Simulated assay, not measured.
Amino acid sequence: MDPIKVAIADDHQIFRKGVILSMRSYTEFKFVLEANNGEELLANLAEAAPDVVLCDLKMPVKDGIDTTKQITKDYPHIRVIILTMYEDERFVGHLMDCGAAGYLLKSTDPSEIKKAILEVMKTGFYLNPFVNKVLVKKNYSRQKFNPTLTTEIVVTDREKEVLTLVCLEFTAAEIALKMDISSRTVEAIKDRMMERFGVKNSVGLAFFAMKNQLID
């Protein structure tokens, strides 16, 4: 099995090198790109073709927020994991809405970074206790979420089942197997719900479902 290709963008070279060095023993990964800021990352992204990007928030020239938006727009197959010192719940919700697949603090142990990368490659997102805490905070429910429904949110039994499995971090293929339907049908159901709820990916679906109590 080929190693997962990882890129890292952070304007602090010592931290950047430290992350790479701390994960050197994990043969599942191969670092293919280092960047000092978002602009440098984006300029080399197509050539490096990473599967996952570890991205800082505060960087010169182009910050992590704008960089995440650009990556999820132009390279939707690349998973972005935010790796930052900002322990601010407002950033978590906003970055997830922008399409980030995970949010980690720079104090995170390398073993959790490894776990996060593997999870986003498997399920599309990684929800650690810090991110989960945001889901139950009232201040997140007050943030602008841009849903398309202004009245009571209604989901079918099949949509509810898909939402439940998405929140349990099952992949589309695993959901299809459990529900005895095709992966294409699962993706179609997810696409319809993402359009209705005004979210961009499985992370957004999970947040929306939990925030609006659409699942048991």
Rank of each mutant, 00 (worst) to 15 (best):
P3W: 01
K5C: 00
V6P: 00
V6W: 01
A9V: 01
D11N: 05
D11A: 02
D11T: 02
G18K: 01
V19R: 02
V19I: 13
M23K: 06
R24A: 09
R24W: 00
S25R: 09
S25N: 11
Y26D: 12
Y26C: 08
T27Y: 01
V32W: 05
G38W: 11
E39A: 08
E40P: 02
L42S: 10
L42Y: 11
N44Y: 09
A46Q: 15
E47K: 15
A49W: 11
P50C: 13
P50R: 11
V52T: 14
V53Y: 04
K58N: 15
P60M: 10
D63E: 13
D66G: 15
D66W: 13
T67M: 10
T67W: 14
T68P: 12
T68H: 11
Q70I: 15
T72M: 15
T72K: 15
T72S: 13
D74T: 12
Y75R: 07
P76C: 09
H77A: 13
I78D: 10
R79H: 13
I81A: 04
I82C: 08
L83C: 05
T84Q: 02
Y86V: 09
Y86R: 07
E87C: 06
H94Y: 11
A101Q: 06
L104I: 06
L104F: 03
K106Q: 10
K106R: 14
S107M: 05
T108P: 03
P110H: 03
E112K: 11
E112R: 10
K114G: 01
I117S: 12
E119L: 07
V120M: 09
V120K: 10
T123N: 13
G124Y: 11
Y126V: 14
F130T: 15
V131G: 10
V131K: 12
K133H: 14
L135K: 09
L135W: 05
V136I: 15
R142A: 08
F145C: 06
N146P: 03
P147C: 07
T148L: 03
T151M: 11
I153H: 06
V155R: 11
T156V: 05
D157M: 06
R158I: 11
R158W: 03
R158N: 08
R158H: 05
E159F: 03
K160S: 12
K160D: 03
K160Q: 14
K160L: 08
V162H: 07
V162W: 08
V166F: 04
V166R: 04
C167T: 11
C167E: 04
L168R: 13
L168I: 01
F170G: 01
A172F: 03
A172M: 01
A173N: 09
E174H: 02
I175G: 04
I175T: 06
A176R: 04
L177R: 12
D180E: 08
S183H: 01
S183W: 00
T185R: 09
E187G: 00
E187R: 08
E187H: 01
R192I: 03
M193Q: 03
E195V: 04
E195N: 07
E195Q: 07
R196L: 04
F197I: 04
V199Y: 03
V199F: 02
S202C: 03
V203K: 07
V203N: 02
V203C: 08
G204F: 10
F208I: 09
K211F: 02
N212R: 07
Q213S: 12
I215S: 04
